[in-house]
Design a protein around this nucleic acid. Structure first.
Lengths: 225, 225
DNA sequence: GGCTAAGTGTAAATTAGCCGACATTTTGCT
DNA sequence: AGCAAAATGTCGGCTAATTTACACTTAGCC
């Protein structure tokens, strides 16, 4: 892979914008690059050396298996997001993997140890990164707070609002979202059963709140959610 | 307040152990110190300049008010823990405050901006701090995962196990915990109603699993939880 | 010491939403 | 085109846990 390209891949991320070309290059020397298509599973937890990943294109979900072998969705990662050992702590027990949701994805990765070195040499980057992790924490906290205190309906509404805000294409008050999730995925994200999610989505369709199909969700009036 | 004392207060925290005396001193110049007693409320969200707090003695709970004005427990902070704007981002909308649980507490604080300066000058500290925040995030994630997928009983058991591990005094298989929480507090932490919590605790008492009173909880056999 | 508020105990009614058990539709694959 | 697998739709029973409601106990305060 051309050094130049790698440079731009990282440079693109707001976290790395303060870095010089040579600094990025240092980080890039050990950068891996990978393409994968829908349904593929990418192990990153205990696979080999701890890495940090950057999703360049597409969408993936981070999945963990509970004791009964059920999939639990931990996170949805979108284009531009970092994932992996973000806490810079190797985590042996957590058996997590990533599953590709969109048609195809592009992922770059770098070694955690190299990233640590870079942070040590670039205090500004270290500070940005700390804030970045902190922000992620805050997002997670808010998500969970919603999950716990609200009922399924409210959770679904909130999820749709968030999704619309992050990825939706707005036209007036209506928002179109590319739908790469199944109803089962949505159910898992908002922590309810598939049946309940289906029911709620159909109810919303009946009430003219949205149009749902497997490719696209159109929220008629985002302000009404 | 004597410089020396402040030095030891911070030095005591594992996060700051790598720092030299002069570095700690720099951080300390602007350190505030405060004592408070049971029931007192300490605002830190939007009060004045953003600060980071270190709880030196006692226990507090971080509480947020939801739209209906109900208290929601966000976190329980124990002796030695940091709290406040840990993400280094000033957070205007979140209206949170701390409430003192134990008879009395001692808190030191420093300005976020000073802490940022220190991090910029000490990349090693910055890295440690990132890991620290990361660890906190992981803990929160696990907590929430428990809250969501388990029933009230399991959640209570897990909470008691965690509490016992963090603060309990073990004697053989029995663990004594100083009980500074009301049953209502416990209910809020494990996200259930007060009545359910009461019922479960009494059930455990009947089953000889523990002895409960307002001052102390004794878990008969921690291995049986 | 006595009063008030906070904390605890208990029970019945109600309910959200999980679960099992299907039928139907859509998709991807050869 | 035709098949199997995945995704979606729908229903009713079941259960944990919330809610409402009230009695009792303890702690703190004048």
């Amino acid at each position: 892979m051309y050094e130049e390209l790698k440079y731009w891949y990282l440079r693109d991320h707001k976290l790395f914008r303060t870095l010089s070309f040579s600094q990025i290059k240092q980080l890039c020397i050990i950068t891996g690059f990978k393409k994968a298509s829908k349904g593929e599973i990418i192990y990153f937890s205990s696979s080999d050396v701890p890495r940090i990943f950057l999703l360049k294109k597409g969408n993936i979900k981070i999945v963990a298996l509970d004791n009964n072998g059920n999939e639990t969705i931990k996170d949805i990662i979108q284009k531009g997001d970092l994932f992996g050992e973000l806490t810079l702590e190797t985590d042996n027990k957590n058996e997590e993997y990533a599953k590709v949701l969109s048609d195809d994805v592009a992922i770059c990765s770098f070694l955690m140890s190299d990233f640590e070195d870079l942070l040590l040499r670039n205090p500004t980057l270290a500070l940005s990164y700390t804030k970045f992790v902190g922000l992620k924490m805050k997002r997670i906290k808010n998500n969970y707070a919603n999950l716990i205190s609200k009922d399924a309906k409210t959770r679904l509404y909130q999820f749709l609002k968030d999704w619309a805000e992050q990825e939706g294409v707005r036209e007036g008050n209506s928002v179109a979202i590319e739908n790469y999730l199944t109803q089962n995925d949505i159910a898992q994200i908002i922590c309810t059963s598939r049946q309940t999610a289906t029911q709620l989505l159909n109810e919303m369709e009946t009430n003219q709140l949205l149009n749902y199909n497997r490719k696209e969700i159109i929220i008629r009036d985002i302000t009404k959610l």
